[in-house]
Amino acid sequence: MANGATVGVIANPASSRDIRRIVARGPATTTNDKINSLARLMEGLAATGVKNVLSMSDAGGIAAGLAGIAAKASAMHWPNLDFVDQKITHSPDDTINAAKAMQDAGVDAIVVLGGDGTNRLLIGSTGSIPVASISTGTNNAYPRRDEPTVVGFAAGLLATGHIDSAACTYRAKTLTINAGDISLPALVDIAVVTGDRIASGAVWDADSLQEVFLCFAEPDAVGLSSIGGRLQPVSRRNPHGLRIRTDATSPRRVTVPIAPGLVRDLGITAVTALPPGETVAINADSGVISVDGERSLRFTADTPVTVTLQHDGPVVLDVPRAMHEAALPTTTTKGEDTHG
């Protein structure tokens, strides 16, 4: 049983800019909700014997809020809490730099609070460290809705060596879009939309959709991956991804939640498997690319744009499997049943 286990914690203070709050009654996760989630996570980590937690720093009040609770008498049993010494840039770099610092510090597991966007930032920055995710963003397909206390148990059991990593982790798939010298990764979806606007980011205009590439497609998902989920489900561990072409005039219809509270009827022209390692060209010759639901890149006919599916994403800690693994060898000694 390893002692001195360390868990890294990343909480994105900016996962709330989302226009879907107005156009689709998107949920709001407040800063105080995030702090409370972290406090619950700490309880789970403490219960499994994790000794140290290394948290991202931020100027958005999350680190300060967590430190405030940690200083209270009621948190004396928590793991020792340190913060990454990092320059705050108010940009996505803050999240990436925190992950890199955790890798350098040799943490045993990382827990991320955020949505699809925050998790996406970690691609390539967490190496072989298992990562557990807690959903706090506006539109989440990637992080599961697990209770932070339980995530704390799972991450703690893994970090302290109580459970076998191989049994409860897997490599996430990624999609990479290449346009000229620009290359952007995604964890869930890449979409091609019409127009030339990046603006507020989120994709919420169904009519603008042209083509969607998916790492996985779960029938109970929300967001663009729900399209695939309804047409041809693909699990997270399936080697293949999915490619879908849309056309508003197509007679083949599917009704899906493309964002929380935003249900749209789409016309589908093609659904095909996307094999790993194969680089495919997109259909359109101009428009905007969104990665994990956020419009990120304009392209024109001058630039060939391709998409590739790979198995090189973060090492995912599967919380349900981890807890199942931990439950198998019973720890209750015979004759100690206090409920008798």
């Binding site: 203070p13 709330s16 800019r17 709050r21 709001a28 407040t30 800063t31 105080n32 100027a59 958005g60 009040g61 999350i62 300060a64």
Partner: peptide, 14 residues
Amino acid sequence: DASTAGASNADRAA
């Protein structure tokens, strides 16, 4: 951060 509890006033709207 020295004056406002909660980093985002968008949260307060909620």
